[in-house]
Amino acid sequence: MEKPITKIKEGKKATIVRLIGGHGFQRRLRTMGIREGKVVEVVTRHPFGGPLVVEVDGRDTTIGRGMAERIIVKE
């Protein structure tokens, strides 16, 4: 089932299906490794609406909660 990456539990993996947003937004995510078809692991979710840390290709990236809502994944 497709859902935003914010719904994935800590330590679990998922595959990116699509990015919702303008050209600039999508490009920024892709150049930092977050693109369709990639397997991501949610390293940690900071509480109280804080950022997510995700791992793609062995590299961590911090993403604000709002941006992360627009990354759609499939488990």
């Binding site: 920024r28 995510l29 930092m32 950022p51 840390v53 590299r59 961590d60 990236t61 911090t62 993403i63 604000g64 909660r65 709002g66 941006m67």
Partner: peptide, 10 residues
């Protein structure tokens, strides 16, 4: 005020 989007180097 845009959100954080930051690569974490090893």
């Amino acid at each position: 005020s845009p959100e954080i989007f930051l690569e974490i180097p090893p």
